[in-house]
Amino acid sequence: MNKLEIISVLKKEANISKAEAARVVQVFFDNMADALARGERVEVRGLCSFFVKEYEEYTGRNPRTGEKVSIRPKKLPFFKAGKELKERVDF
């Protein structure tokens, strides 16, 4: 299921227009992305939480050539499934 399909199901379920459903989905995920960009945690009860992990610079290896490469510091979001989601997916 992709964003467009979610929008059309939400339109039906919530009885709103397609433009409104698209706006809601956009604002929902933009809010989460903005919070993560600020380094904030995100917590949506029942669905999931996210936090940003910071990695320092390290020396990795190119697995194909075995050459040493230096990996620059980076930040990555970490996902944790919520309790309700976990239980419903693995019933």
Binding site: N31, A35, E40, R41, E43, S49
Partner: peptide
Amino acid sequence: MALTKIQIV
């Protein structure tokens, strides 16, 4: 501060 459902709402 964590972003929660209520702020998204």
